[in-house]
């Protein structure tokens, strides 16, 4: 059997000759003579990319991780990228997708911090995660509406005004959603099911301890490293939590860990795998 789907369902060339695309206007394939003057297209695609960002809420805050890899197609181009960005005192922005657009977002967020500083030098008006998220979603949506997108999927984590944890997603289309368990890219296929095992219903995050959340997140990074060919085993992790001190006041800590390794790797399963997909041995 021919395993190439491209040829499935076509008349056999040896028997019937080459396929005529013009039968009953069945296809929009063009004549070979026109192929040279194919219209110039304004195409866009990510060049150097960062893969999944994975995050979840727990009872005192949020935890988020992203590896440090920048891929150029299938080439490992950079292994020292930081894709978790701190904004203000208690907000983190995790970015996957195109790295140059990530850096553009980084500059935009730095500018935002400066403006906040100018108008609120005496403090009080905190720049919080929901504000950062709304701002980013407007930027991404406006860019997509200009057909000139910032090729990223972004997760913003932090706290609401009322002190509850905040976690929300926005991507290159401007599509937004919130959840107690969020991941971008491959992570939404591989990590989210693991995260939802810990937090089946959105409100259940209130029962999750930090250690458990972290354990599951570390496992997610491991699974992603196993199965996502564009993932690395070196990653960064941010934990933001609000703790009530003895005096009763709320204290927010922002902990940014870098150069973490995916621990307890086991490649035993690898020897049992042979072939790929539909390959018949």
């Amino acid at each position: 059997m021919n395993h190439d789907p491209f040829h499935w369902g076509r008349p056999n060339q040896e028997t019937y000759g080459t396929y005529n695309y013009n039968i009953a206007q069945a296809s929009n394939q063009q004549h070979e003579s026109q192929l040279d003057d194919f219209p110039k297209m304004h195409t866009q695609q990510p060049i150097i990319t960062g893969t999944s960002v994975v995050s979840l809420k727990f009872k005192d805050g949020i935890i988020i991780a992203a590896d440090n890899l920048g891929s150029y197609g299938s080439l490992l181009r950079f292994n020292n990228l930081e894709r978790l960005i701190k904004v203000g005192d208690e907000t983190v922005v995790g970015i996957s997708g195109d790295i140059s657009d990530l850096q553009q977002l980084e500059r935009i967020l730095a500018q935002l911090e400066i403006e906040e500083e100018i108008y609120d030098s005496d403090g009080g008006h905190k720049l919080r995660a929901p504000h950062v998220h709304e701002y980013l979603s407007k930027i991404l949506y406006n860019r997509r509406s200009k057909m000139d997108p910032l090729w990223n999927a972004v997760i913003v984590g932090g706290f609401n005004e009322d002190g509850t944890p905040f976690l929300k997603y926005v991507d290159l289309l401007g599509v937004t959603y919130g959840s107690s368990t969020l991941a971008t890219g491959f992570g939404s296929h591989l990590a989210v099911p693991l995260l939802r095992q810990l937090i089946p219903n959105d409100i259940d995050y209130t029962k999750v301890e930090e250690e458990d959340a972290r354990k599951v997140l570390e496992n997610c990074m491991r699974v992603l490293f196993y199965r996502d060919a564009r993932a690395a085993d070196k990653y960064s992790l941010v934990t933001i939590k609000s703790q009530t001190s003895e005096s009763g006041s709320k204290q927010i800590t922002f902990n940014h860990e870098k150069e973490l390794k995916v621990e307890n790797q086991s490649w035993k399963f690898a020897k049992d795998i042979s072939g790929y997909g539909s390959k018949q041995l």
Binding site: Y119, D120, G124, H125, P130, H131, E134, Y135, K138
Partner: peptide, 15 residues
């Protein structure tokens, strides 16, 4: 409200 989803602070308004 539109861009940041937060009410304009009085001090910023005045400035």
């Amino acid at each position: 409200k539109m861009i940041f989803n937060r009410p304009l602070s009085t001090s910023k308004a005045v400035l």
